[in-house]
């Protein structure tokens, strides 16, 4: 089987809160399921053809990191947008998520986003920090999602955009409307660090199944993984957050 390829955008500049854990998780689970998987690091100036990768991942960075990669990513925006329309699985965290919208605010004022989705981000007075519990049905059934958020951006979706999940406890997109992240086709943008995927194996598997189906590979997913530790870590923090501790 031809290896699956995950494009890891700017691993040096966009990994402030150890979001690389998501890449480690995806690659290991693919391997455990029996799908060969390579991670292709994409740096500023690295050639990348979105047609040749199975997924794109970008983590959160510092303001300085975001500034450095902005021009490079903007030059790829048209191809990126087309790939998203073509159902490419994409996961963007923190300010990489903000970058997908129409515009976002930094200490230096309003900046234009890549305009891949219809939302915008303003700067809040107070930082929104803490453990967070969400709920969504992206896998076909209602399930919880746990993580840690740490952002000053307040993101507002327009009517045309759907959130990734709804907030059970925590701030989410803006601390006001109970929405968290964005989901458009197979693109997910979210504020969740933690990292997101290891403690939410169902979300990791959602991306894996999407990648595999896009390749036209038929599988009945008989082969399941032993996720005892994954769910234990998930439950540990979920029960504490829900109890308000």
């Amino acid at each position: 089987m031809k290896s699956f390829i995950i494009a890891y955008m700017y691993p040096d500049l966009m990994n402030l809160f150890a979001d690389r854990g998501n890449i480690i998780c995806l690659q290991k689970r693919m391997q455990w399921y029996g799908f060969p998987c390579k991670v292709q690091a994409v740096h500023i100036g690295t050639a990348l053809s979105f047609d040749e990768v199975d997924m794109v991942f970008m983590g959160g960075g510092s303001d300085r990191g975001l500034k450095s990669i902005y021009g490079d990513l903007a030059s790829r925006a048209d191809d990126f947008k087309q790939a998203v329309e073509d159902q490419l699985p994409v996961l963007c965290i923190g300010n990489a998520y903000q970058l997908l919208g129409r515009e976002y605010e930094t200490a230096e004022g309003m900046q234009s986003g890549l305009n891949l989705c219809d939302f915008y981000t303003t700067l809040a007075q107070e930082r929104m920090v803490g453990n967070i519990v969400l709920e969504n049905s992206i896998t076909g059934q209602k399930q919880f999602i746990v993580g840690f958020e740490n952002h000053t951006g307040k993101t507002f979706l327009t009517d045309k955009a759907s959130p990734f999940a709804s907030v059970i406890k925590g701030y989410g997109n803006n601390g006001e409307d109970g929405s968290e992240g964005i989901n458009y086709k197979n693109l997910v943008g979210t504020y969740l660090h933690g990292p997101l995927l290891p403690k939410n194996p169902h979300i990791a598997d959602y991306f894996i199944q999407t990648m595999v189906q896009r390749r036209g590979i038929r599988t009945d997913w008989q082969h399941t993984l032993d996720d005892t530790i994954e769910w234990l870590a998930h439950e540990q923090i979920k029960s504490r957050v829900l109890k308000g501790r």
């Binding site: 809160f17 150890a18 690389r20 854990g21 920090v129 840690f148 740490n150 660090h193 990292p195 290891p198």
Partner: peptide, 9 residues
């Protein structure tokens, strides 16, 4: 530190 994400580094 409330955020333990760093263990993935």
């Amino acid at each position: 530190g409330r955020d333990i994400s760093w263990i993935w580094d």
